[in-house]
Design a protein around this nucleic acid. Sequence first.
DNA 1: ACATAAAGTCAGGAATACCTGACATATGGT
DNA 2: ACCATATGTCAGGTATTCCTGACTTTATGT
Lengths: 65, 65
Amino acid sequence: MNNRLKVLRAERNWSQAELAERLDVSRQAVNAIETGKHDPSLPLAFRIARLFALSIEEIFDDGHR
Amino acid sequence: MNNRLKVLRAERNWSQAELAERLDVSRQAVNAIETGKHDPSLPLAFRIARLFALSIEEIFDDGHR
DNA sequence: ACATAAAGTCAGGAATACCTGACATATGGT
DNA sequence: ACCATATGTCAGGTATTCCTGACTTTATGT
């Protein structure tokens, strides 16, 4: 699952730790998602989308067009 | 996580088993999601949204707003 | 009433998404 | 060069999402 987390974070000058705090997850969880080690749960995907005021589909991409 | 799976399925006259087959998951997985026992993974949420030609947000609702 | 299909549920197990704590490496500022 | 911050990664543990197979309960049709 590809995602635009790193760029969205860079646009706001947030560290992974800052983003993690805003999402109420661990810094490692943010890192793992950014580096593609695993996908967020659906509830977390919702929190991410809401934080950036975007739809889940605008942030995450599972390929299958 | 609330969802409109049951209605979307009813609109198409699909059984849980038929839906499961189209989503390539077990019948029990569909049942568990419909009955709110657990949330789908993000990849599965994408497949569900694509199948019904809707956005994830149009199908699932995590409460917050 | 009866038969079949659909839906719900349980147990046990596999894979994955989270956690904390620790440590290594990289990047940036002074 | 030095120091602080950021990022990446590992281990070990817990919780969740899926699986199969089996069973019960509920709906539907004849």
